[in-house]
Design a protein around this nucleic acid. Structure first.
Length: 303
DNA sequence: CGCATTTGACCGGCGC
DNA sequence: GCGCCGGTCAAATGCG
């Protein structure tokens, strides 16, 4: 439940070796990395020994991080189960501050979670009896994407190509909602709606409807790093529910096992969390510097 | 010139 | 039946 009291999620794990972090500015680390080969052997041995030491430490920290991640996932699952239980018991107590249209509330019935974007069609158990039309098997998933706050475009780069066909200002959100169809339409029936979050203007909420019936068109593009500008939104959106951003552009690199099906279905949460952690780590310049130092040490050690 | 985007009009469902 | 609202259409516009 209260992660913060049990787990330090700040990633401040002393992963960065103090020596590198404090004594050596980043530039100096890089400089050493490139000049290591020119140093005398004694210095080399000394520094490589220290680096091996640090490498061990980093490995230990990595292990610790993995354990924390596991625990966090367990806590998350427990929380989710509790919420599901609660919602099952109080189905009519939606967070309906403003009365929404029936169709919408039925579609979004499973989405307060935000995660598990699978929402695996609104036609699961309880809602199916409401409207005959709902039986159309459209899978609805919701994805949160953090963008630059100044970025006014409602573009979510998920690798697919979309054609915008409309934009509306809805009642419950002052920011406009953009409507997109898959550019493979009409053969591909997938639509998506993109709107800024009411709570956090820097977060785009993309709602996907349907499943692509064609392969991912940008397998090539993604490898060239076309995911700039889309950063995963870790943490919670608002305070009501834990939310997870699904960064579709990373689906290629995440795991080849599930790469075969470019479906809308959200990957299971632990995988997402792992990716978010990895992203956070790789974005950290200090971590990168330490990594560079560790790798160089390893290389020297092998030579 | 062709294609994508914009934007106001229109449609249909829902609540009163 | 009427008005509100979300969603879609399609003509106008912009861009390469």
């Amino acid at each position: 439940m209260d992660y913060s009291s049990r787990i330090n999620t700040s990633l401040d794990l002393n992963i960065i070796p103090l020596r590198l972090h404090q004594e050596l500015p980043k530039k100096e680390v890089e400089h050493n990395f490139f000049s290591l080969g020119l140093k005398k052997s004694s210095v080399k041995e000394q520094s490589s020994g220290a680096l091996v030491e640090e490498l061990k430490r980093v490995s230990a920290e990595n292990k610790k991080l993995s354990e924390m991640l596991t625990e966090m996932c367990e806590n998350y699952n427990a929380l989710r189960n509790n919420l599901m239980e609660y919602m099952r018991k109080n189905p009519e107590k939606e967070l309906s501050s403003s009365k929404k249209r029936k169709s919408e509330s039925s579609n979004n019935n499973s989405t307060p979670m935000g995660i598990n974007g699978n929402s695996e069609s609104s036609s699961t158990d309880e809602e199916s009896c409401k409207k005959p039309k709902e039986e159309i098997k459209t899978t609805v998933s919701r994805v949160y994407v953090r963008t630059e706050a100044s970025d006014t475009s409602l573009i979510v780069k998920d690798g697919y190509q979309w054609r915008k066909y409309g934009q509306k200002v809805t009642r419950d959100n002052p920011s406009p909602r953009a409507y997109f169809k898959c550019s493979f339409a009409p053969s591909c029936p997938v639509k998506k709606k993109v709107q800024r979050s009411v709570d956090d203007q820097s977060v785009l909420v993309a709602t996907y409807e349907g499943e692509h019936n064609h392969p991912h068109p940008s397998q090539m593009e993604v490898t060239t790093g076309s995911n700039r500008g889309v950063a995963p939104c870790s943490g919670s959106l608002g305070s009501s529910a834990p939310t997870v951003t699904l960064d579709w552009t990373k689906s290629k690199s995440s795991s080849d096992s599930k790469n075969a099906t470019p479906k809308i279905d959200a990957p299971e949460v632990p995988q997402v969390l792992v990716e978010q952690m990895a992203t956070s780590l790789t974005k950290d310049p200090n971590f990168r510097a330490a990594l560079v130092a560790a790798i160089s040490g390893k290389m020297l050690h092998n030579n």
